[in-house]
Write a protein that binds this DNA or RNA. Structure first.
Ligand SMILES: [Mn+2]
Ligand SMILES: [Mn+2]
Ligand SMILES: [Mn+2]
Ligand SMILES: [Mn+2]
Lengths: 223, 223
DNA sequence: AAATAAATTTAGTCTCACCTAAATTTATTT
DNA sequence: AAATAAATTTAGGTGAGACTAAATTTATTT
C-alpha cells in the first residue's frame, strides 16, 4: 500500500521537475507561483512528500526541493501524458496550438497507460509535441535538449527554432502569426544592447521583425 | 458564485438519473451500491445537494432522490460526455467495447465543452454509443428509447438488438463472442418458465444459444 | 398488532489539500 | 555589523467528502 500519487502530487512533481531543469532545486516560492498555491501550503506538501518510506522528493528546510529517482519517473510520466495529449489534440481533433495546454493539464492526470500507448501508436510515436517540446520516451527517459534561448543570439547568427513555451495562448497566437514555429530557420539582423530587442528575418516571411525579451526568452533555438 | 459541480457530485447526479429511469426515486442504498460509498455518506450528500438555493436534487427523508431540471441537465451533460467518449475511444483509438467504460468514467468529468464538440464533429454526431446506448443531444435532451429487455420475449418472437449494458467487461466479451451486438436480429426459439432461460437464434450464427436471465436482463431489444 | 428485519439517518471522526497570520530564517543593503 | 527586506516555516484553521457505530424509521413477517 504505497502512498497514492494524487493529481495534486503529480502537479507538484511536474513543476519541481521543470524548475530543476533550470537552476538546481525548486524553491518554495517558485513552486507556489507555478501551482497557484500559498507558499505555506507548498512547504507542508514538500515536508510530506519528503517524509515517506520511499520519498518522491528530497527536501531540506530553506533549500527547496529536488526529485528522487522515483519522483522523477512519476514526473516524466505526467509530462509524457501532457505532451502526447497536446500532440493528439492538435493532430486528431484539430485544436490549434494555443488551445491545447489547458486541456492537457486536466487530462494528463486521468488517462490510463493504455490510453497513453494507443495515442503514441496512433501518432506514430512522436518525439516532440506541437510546441517542439521533447516527449519523454515510453520507458520514461527525457531525451537531451541542446536548444538555447533565442534571446542569447547576437547579430548575424543563424539558427533553427526548436521549441516555444506553451503556457501563454496569446504568445502562441502571436508566434504563429509571425511564423516563429518549430523547424523554421531565422537570421538575427540586429541586437540592441539597451532593451535586448532582436531584429530577425524569419524564413518564408517578407519583412524583418523586432522581438522583445518577453518573446525571445520563450523561444528556444539550435544554432 | 453558484455551487461548483464537483466530480463527486457529477457521479451522484449521473447515478440518480439512471436509477430514476427505472423506478421512481433513487434510494440511498441503491446509490451507495452504485457509487461504492457507505449509505451514511450518501445521505449526507443528498441532504447537501437538496439544500442549496437552486438545488440539483429533490430529497425527502426516507424517500430517496430525484433530479430537478438543473440536476437533470447536469446529469445529461455527464452522460453525453461518457457516451461520446466511449464512441471516440472505439472509433478513433481502436479500443474494444469492453474496455471503454472504465476509461470514459474518468474522462467524462474532465473534458471541456470544446473537446465534447470536437469529438461529436469528428464522429459525425453519433446518436448511439458502441453499446447502442442513446447519446443525449448537444442541447441536453435524452432521445426516447423504446427498447425492452430481451428477458421479456417469448417463444417465436422476433426482435432487433438495440443496446446492452456496458459496465461488465466479461459480459461484453461474451456477447461479442456469441454475436449479440446492436442491430443484429434474433428469433426466440424457446422460453423456459422455470429458470427464465431463452434459446435464441442469432442472425449470422450457425447454432442456437441458450441465455440465462443474467444475460437476457442486460440486453435490450426492439420487437 | 407485535416482533423482526431492512433501510435510512444521525453523530462523531478522519484525511487531504488547501488557507491566513505570525514567527523565524536567510539574503541584501547600508 | 546592523538594519532591512525577502523567503520560508510554524501554528492553527477550514471545507469537501468520505467512514464507522449507534439510533431511528419504515417494511415485512408471524
Ligand atoms: Mn503544455
Ligand atoms: Mn507543449
Ligand atoms: Mn459506459
Ligand atoms: Mn456505453
Amino acid at each position: 500500500m504505497s502512498e497514492a500519487i494524487t493529481q495534486s502530487i503529480q502537479d507538484y512533481l511536474k513543476h519541481i521537475y521543470e524548475l530543476n531543469e533550470y537552476g538546481g532545486s525548486a524553491s518554495t516560492n517558485d513552486l507556489a507561483a507555478r501551482l497557484n498555491i500559498a507558499p505555506a501550503s507548498v512547504t507542508g506538501m514538500l515536508q510530506k512528500l519528503a517524509s515517506t518510506k520511499s520519498p518522491l522528493v528530497i527536501y531540506k528546510k530553506h533549500q527547496g526541493a529536488t526529485l528522487t529517482k522515483n519522483g522523477e519517473k512519476a514526473a516524466l510520466e505526467v509530462i509524457r501524458h501532457h505532451r502526447l495529449l497536446e500532440t493528439f489534440l492538435v493532430n486528431t481533433l484539430g485544436y490549434s496550438w494555443d488551445e491545447v495546454h489547458h486541456e492537457a493539464d486536466k487530462l494528463e492526470h486521468v488517462i490510463s497507460e493504455d490510453f497513453e500507448a494507443r495515442m503514441a501508436e496512433a501518432l506514430g510515436h512522436p518525439t516532440r509535441d506541437p510546441h517542439g517540446e521533447l516527449i519523454p520516451t515510453a520507458d520514461l527517459t527525457m531525451p537531451a535538449d541542446e536548444s538555447c534561448p533565442l534571446a542569447s543570439l547576437r547579430t548575424d547568427e543563424t539558427a533553427t527554432v526548436r521549441r516555444v513555451s506553451d503556457d501563454d495562448p496569446a504568445l502562441l497566437r502571436h508566434l504563429r502569426e509571425i511564423g516563429v514555429v518549430p523547424e523554421v530557420k531565422i537570421v538575427v539582423k540586429n541586437y540592441s544592447a539597451f532593451d535586448g530587442n532582436l531584429t530577425i528575418k524569419v524564413e518564408g516571411q517578407k519583412a524583418n521583425i523586432v522581438l522583445g525579451t518577453a518573446v525571445t526568452s520563450q523561444v528556444f533555438v539550435d544554432k
